[in-house]
Structures are given as structure tokens and as C-alpha cells.
Amino acid sequence: MMIGIRELTYRIGKKELLHDLSFEVKSGELLAVLGANGAGKSTLMKLLCREINPTSGRIYFRGCDLQSYKLPELAKQRAVLSQQNTISISFLVHELVMMGRYPHFDQYPSEADVVIVRQVMVETGITHLSGRDYNTLSGGEQQRVQLARVLAQIYDCKDACLFLDEPTNGLDLRYQQQVMELARSLADRGYCVICILHDINFASRFADKILMLKEGRKVAMGAPVEVINCENIHETFSINVKLMPCEGYSCPLVIPATSNIN
């Protein structure tokens, strides 16, 4: 078990953002988290990366309580791609990707760090941006640079954990697919990937498991074929959808039901 969550509850004042959540994720698995705005997805992500601490319940990371890890130790085994990534002081793209290696070296990077930075830049397709100023890049390019940085952080830790908060945000269709393929291939290499997504079809296509959240509670969790159905989706998003079987895929496509239009 890579990550285990037991009866996790998070409260701010009287408002309960997450209620009694329990689940497990193994290494080599890609978990997609689905839910409407305000369902508690980002709160869950923050708890998992220890930005905030649970009100009650526990989070286990590789069998030990998440709280028992030292920050630098944790940084070598899990990386996080946040949603907002603006920087005020301008850095060059390769400098920024190198920051992903910060937990691994003291003052200046080793040869191995430089090699890893070069590799992740190839994998994320940003080699040609290497010498550019980050602040002059387009939103999609910035997102890919940040992904490269995050990837560099755990590149040489074979069973690390990767948290992605809406990684396809601001990317065009081609790069959305590329990012998800990359996430998939990382999971296949043994990483544990937890990813907040909005697109149900992307989730069912790439994820091993899907967690559906509504108002901080678990609606359903399981393999895409098990949980993607009209009832769960209606429960989670309060929308009506139709399912369309798709040749070559076990999980049906989800398309909006057009009852309100026409």
C-alpha cells in the first residue's frame, strides 16, 4: 500500500470539507479524483501533500503516518503539481526545472541532476524552451514546464508518488492527451499517481481507479467500468448524461444528455 487514508475528516470552523473518507492507492496505480467545484478535491490534495493537517483520521504514506516524515525526506518521494503557478521573479526554464532537483543536492547540482533535467525536458517536450524566460511563456507552456519540474523531483525514485491538481488545465487537446499519457506511463513504471480531473472520459480512459466526491463525501470508488454510470454521475455532478459504448474500450463514453435543450 502506497497511500492509505482512514476516516479522514477535515473541518474549518463548523464547515466540514471532507467527511470520513477512507481509501487506499497502491503503487503503479493511477487514481483520478472527480467531483463538482467545492466537492473537496483540492482539500483532499492539500491533506495528502501535508499542506494542511487533518481534523481527525489518518493518512499513511508507505505504511507510516504522513506526519512522521521530515519535509526534505518527503520531498524526495513525492512531488506535487499545483493549480496556480505564477512566479514573480523571472527564472529561465532550465533553472526552474532544476529546482525540481533541489531536495536532492546541497548547494549545486551533480552531473546526475543535470542529466535528469535534460531527460524530463525531452519527455515533456519543452527542450526548445530551455533558455526562455518563464514569464514570457504561454499558459500551456508554463504548465508543461511546471510538470517537468515536478517530474524531475521524483524521476530517480522508482516508486514515488505524484499528485497532479488538474494537470490538463490550460492545455490544448494535444497536450492534454500528452500529459495524461505521461501520467499513465509513470503509473506503469511503478509510480503512484493521484490526479484531479474534470473530464470524465479522460479519467475513465487513463485511470485505474476513480474516486467520486460530493460535498466532502465519497460517492463511489472503483475501476472506471464499475463506477462510471448515470446514477453516480448524476449524484456527483447533478447533471444528466448518456453513456455510449465505444468500440475497443471497456468503459462507455459519457456525453451530456440534451433533455434541456431542444
Partner: peptide
């Protein structure tokens, strides 16, 4: 947050 994730 990003700095925290990097172990700072």
C-alpha cells in the same frame, strides 16, 4: 505551497 512540496 510549492516550496513546501519541495521540502522547504
Amino acid at each position: 505551497a510549492q516550496a513546501l512540496h519541495m521540502g522547504v
